[in-house]
């Protein structure tokens, strides 16, 4: 029974990304490689952050501002890393395009670029879910479960899985938004991504209040769905644009 519960928690956190992986990513080896490298990047960022914060740990459990500081520094660092990731991707795109010219195949399509962005985001999201939720699930397979005091109605594993799902969504699709924003030089999209990330991180601070998760988690899901809607609208627009362009040029 607990094994079923453990698998269930894992699927709550990673189910959507798993289906995304199977249906889109796994078809194209290059995208798998993108997912892996973006996961590695996120892991490295986490290790660096934990190295920075290690001297101050463990934080006191009843003061909230060190946690706020921690979330802010982490988000800033990771957003900086996202920009770096974009730079690397940009160079890669040039290499791929010139390579395509050389073997006289078409250059990257718009959908290809979007898929690479999606794969990069999925890597970040999966890394988040894996390290913040899945790696703590080991006890969930055992004979008992675990509740934290501040959110006493729901098992800890379930809450962390639910939060992780929200973050997977945010990470995955904000990468698409960010890449499009960088590519088109759209300032709004460039700024909105760190804002979303920071807002989501800050919303988890609500959990610090006793029973705060009742409010915090719905708010978090609001942010996640906003990201999703924004990303969907933007991609739809881009696809329409490019279709018009190609039909006009034809």
């Amino acid at each position: 029974m607990t094994v079923a519960a453990g698998i269930g928690y894992a699927l709550v956190a990673l189910g959507p990304s798993l289906s995304l992986f199977v249906s889109v990513i796994s078809r194209k080896p290059f995208l798998i490689l993108t997912v892996l490298s973006s996961t590695l990047l996120w892991l490295v960022s986490l290790i660096i952050l934990s190295g920075l914060w290690r001297p101050f740990l463990p934080l006191k459990a009843n003061v909230w501002w060190p946690y706020a500081l921690l979330v802010i520094t982490s988000v800033c660092f990771q957003e900086g890393l996202r920009f770096l990731f974009w730079k690397v991707y940009k160079r890669l795109e040039d290499v791929l395009d010139s390579f395509a010219d050389r073997i006289s195949r078409p250059r990257l399509f718009l959908t290809d670029k979007l898929q690479i962005a999606l794969a990069g985001g999925l890597g970040h999201g999966v890394a988040h879910a894996v390290f913040f939720c899945l790696s703590l699930l080991t006890p969930a397979f055992g004979p008992a479960t675990f509740y934290v005091e501040r959110c006493s109605k729901v098992p800890f594993f379930l809450i962390s899985a639910i939060i992780a799902l929200a973050f997977v969504t945010i990470h995955t699709f904000s990468m698409v938004i960010a890449f499009e924003g960088y590519a088109k030089g759209n300032k709004v999209d460039q700024v909105i991504v760190p804002v979303i990330h920071l807002a989501a991180g800050m919303l988890t601070l609500v959990n610090f209040a006793s029973e705060g998760c009742v409010i915090g988690i719905p708010l978090l899901y609001l942010v996640a769905s906003l990201t999703l809607v924004h990303c969907g609208k933007m991609v739809w627009q881009r696809l329409l644009e490019s279709r018009n362009q190609s039909s006009a040029s034809r």
Partner: peptide, 17 residues
Amino acid sequence: LLMEPFVVGVTTNLMMF
């Protein structure tokens, strides 16, 4: 040595980013 105490400390307070 580094990451586990960090991650465990953060998540058990339901803090994520």
